[in-house]
Amino acid sequence: MNLSADEVKKIAYLARLGINDNDIDAYASELSNMLDLMTQMSDTNTDAIQPMAHPMDQTQRFRADIASEKNQRQNFQSIAPQIENGLYLVPKVLD
């Protein structure tokens, strides 16, 4: 299976991941090789097999919907790249 440069660009955008133009062909070829490896799976019939998400088939555990954490806003914001008045700063989204 061959991924084109355009497909790599599209996937990178979906992942919001900057990649250098110079690297796109290398990624296309490496990802194509990985996909070739993965297509080996298609030779095995798995129609009657249930997908396995947890090794012990344990389902997601729930807890009661009550606050269990104390407010650590200041603590968490102290490691943010840019904050102002207790808010995370990002570039303007709406004009």
Binding site: V8, I11, A12, L14, A15, R16, L17, G18, I19, N20, D23, Y27, E30, L31, M34
Partner: peptide, 17 residues
């Protein structure tokens, strides 16, 4: 993300996406 992730991490994010 582009400036801070290395190439192996990028490869796997692309593959996974």
């Amino acid at each position: 993300r582009g400036e801070a992730f290395g190439s192996e991490v990028k490869r796997r994010i692309l593959m996974g996406t």
